[in-house]
Computed example of a mutant assay.
Amino acid sequence: MKQKFLLATAAAALLTLSAQGAMAQNLAIVNGKAVPKARLDALSQQVARTGRPVTPEMEGQLREEVIAREVFMQEADKLGLAARDDVKVQMELARQSILIRELFADYQKKNPVTDADIKAEYDKFVAANGGKEYKARHILVEKEDEAKAIIASLKKGGKFDAIAKKQSKDPGSGAKGGDLDWANPASYVPEFSEAMSKLAKGQTTDTPVKTQFGFHVIRVDDIRDAQLPSFDEVKPQISQQMQQQKLATFQEDLRKKAKIE
Rank of each mutant, 00 (worst) to 15 (best):
G21T: 03
I218N: 05
R84W: 02
V35R: 00
R69K: 08
Q45A: 14
R84H: 10
Q203N: 14
S153N: 14
Q244H: 03
Q20V: 02
W182C: 00
H138N: 15
L6D: 10
Q227F: 11
Q203F: 06
K109Q: 11
F125N: 08
E57C: 13
R95I: 01
A162E: 15
L43A: 10
E70V: 06
G60N: 13
E92S: 03
P171Y: 09
P208A: 02
F104R: 09
A162W: 10
V87G: 07
K2A: 10
D77C: 10
P185F: 04
A76Y: 06
V220E: 11
L247W: 04
A10D: 00
K235H: 01
M73N: 06
S18N: 03
Q241K: 13
Q251V: 12
S173R: 08
K148H: 00
A258V: 03
K159W: 01
K176E: 12
I260A: 01
A42M: 11
A195Q: 08
K246Q: 11
A175H: 08
Q243D: 02
S44W: 01
E65A: 09
A94P: 03
G60F: 12
L154N: 12
T204K: 03
D161W: 04
K78D: 12
Q25T: 05
I151C: 04
G130M: 08
